[in-house]
């Protein structure tokens, strides 16, 4: 599929865990704005692939990534590049909400603080408010910024984690099954938030819910057994898939 001004360009990306090859040479371009969904049965490598975009695979012992992943034309696996700086540009939201056991304010302020992005309390206050607003959480928590982030409900926690990521001013937000631990109402709120955020950020979402992929994403990539099978506009994938394996999966025959 042709994509203008891709944010990421991946060529022949392979990931090994020890002797096991989890991804067998993925080629994909990710659009600069909008939502790209990765779908596929569990164990197909979609989460592993997601983690190559912010080099979180580096933290797993025995994991090796080969091939090239470029972000705005810059190789993110370049030896000279500090993964720490990459991760500030590429935020991530995990399957289980993982706010720090600190206050809501400190949760959001942690990223800006370690990057030294603000000076003084007033700037930080403004940044925290802006991030919480963008994550759609401000109205719910503005009076209790000092309570522990772990005291919020699951859906609020997940939006707090998004606010936390936004505060670092990233260009990309990776989401690894962000709604899998949430109830339907919280999921709907989260999906609405994703729709808002896609104007501003490049969002890549891994999901095992095809309905969710259909609802929130602009483009969908189908992974199967460590291979990228099909990648196209979401409409096309769900109405007229080009591969029988995709067809089988979205109709529920596999996975």
């Amino acid at each position: 599929m042709d994509i203008q001004n891709p944010k990421f360009v991946c060529r022949d990306v392979r990931v090994h865990y020890g002797d096991f090859e989890a991804l067998h040479g993925i080629n994909i371009d990710i659009a600069d704005r909008g939502v790209t969904a990765f779908i596929g049965p569990s164990g197909c490598g979609k989460s592993t692939f997601l983690r190559t975009f912010n080099r979180m695979n580096d933290t797993i012992e025995g994991a090796r990534v080969s091939g090239s992943v470029t972000m705005d034309g810059q190789d993110i696996y370049d030896k000279g590049l500090d993964p720490v700086l990459l991760r500030a540009r590429v935020g991530m939201v995990f399957q289980k909400p993982n706010p720090f056991p600190k206050s809501i304010y400190d949760n959001v302020a942690y990223g800006p603080k370690i990057h030294g992005m603000t000076s003084g309390k007033a700037e930080m206050d403004a940044l925290v408010e802006r991030s919480l607003r963008r994550a759609g959480l401000w109205e719910e928590v503005k009076d209790r910024l000092k309570i522990a982030g772990t005291g919020l409900s699951g859906g609020q926690q997940q939006r707090l984690v998004i606010a936390r990521a936004i505060a670092v001013n990233p260009e990309v937000i990776l989401m690894d099954e962000p709604a899998s631990a949430l109830d339907p109402i919280a999921t709907a709120k989260l999906e609405a938030l994703i729709q808002e955020l896609k104007e501003r950020y490049c969002i890549i979402i891994v999901t095992h819910s095809m309905a969710q992929a259909a609802r929130v994403s602009d483009k969908t990539a189908f992974f199967y057994m460590g291979d990228l099978i099909e990648y196209d506009a979401t409409e096309k994938i769900f109405t007229n898939p080009g591969d029988t394996r995709t067809q089988d999966y979205i109709t529920g025959r596999t996975g």
């Binding site: 912010n54 979180m56 933290t59 720490v84 700086l85 990459l86 991760r87 500030a88 540009r89 935020g91 991530m92 995990f94 289980k96 993982n98 706010p99 720090f100 056991p101 942690y110 990223g111 370690i114 990057h115 984690v161 936390r164 990521a165 670092v168 990776l174």
Partner: peptide, 22 residues
């Protein structure tokens, strides 16, 4: 749990920072 460290890492904290600060 690993969630805390992963959270810090994903925000661009270095490994040392996430261990010492979180």
């Amino acid at each position: 749990g690993p969630g805390i460290v992963n959270g810090a890492l994903s925000l661009g904290a270095s490994h040392t920072q996430s261990v010492f600060q979180q």
